[in-house]
Amino acid sequence: MSPSLFAGFALGFSLIMAIGSQNAFVLRQGLRRQHVFWICLTCATSDALLITAGVMGFGSLTLVWPWFEQAMRWGGAAFLFWYGARSLLAAWRGGETLQTNGSAPAEVALLPVLMTVAALTWLNPHVYLDTVVLLGAISAQYPQPLLFGLGAAIASFTFFFSLGYGAAALAPLFAHPRSWQVLDVVVGLTMWAIAVKLLMM
Rank of each mutant, 00 (worst) to 15 (best):
S2H: 15
P3F: 02
S4M: 11
S4K: 11
L5D: 04
A10S: 01
G12D: 07
F13M: 10
I16E: 02
I19Q: 00
G20N: 07
S21N: 12
R28S: 07
G30H: 05
R33F: 01
H35Q: 08
V36W: 03
C40I: 02
A44S: 13
A44Q: 10
A48K: 01
T52F: 15
G54H: 10
G54W: 09
G54A: 02
V55K: 03
S60N: 15
S60V: 14
L63G: 02
V64Y: 09
W65A: 08
F68V: 13
F68M: 15
Q70E: 15
A71D: 04
G76C: 12
G76N: 03
A77P: 04
L80R: 10
Y83I: 07
A85S: 13
S87Q: 12
S87A: 15
R93P: 02
R93F: 03
T97W: 00
T97E: 02
L98E: 06
N101G: 14
S103A: 08
P105L: 05
P105N: 07
L110E: 10
L110I: 12
L111F: 11
P112K: 07
L114S: 09
L114N: 09
V117L: 05
T121S: 14
N124G: 03
Y128A: 06
L129V: 12
L135M: 03
I138G: 08
S139Y: 06
Q141L: 15
L147Q: 13
A152K: 09
A153I: 02
T158E: 04
F159V: 08
S162G: 14
L163T: 00
G164M: 10
Y165V: 00
L170A: 08
F174Q: 04
S179C: 09
V182S: 00
L183W: 03
V186N: 01
G188W: 04
G188V: 03
L189R: 02
T190W: 08
T190D: 12
T190V: 07
M191A: 14
V196L: 09
V196N: 00
L198Y: 01
L199W: 13
L199T: 00
M201W: 12
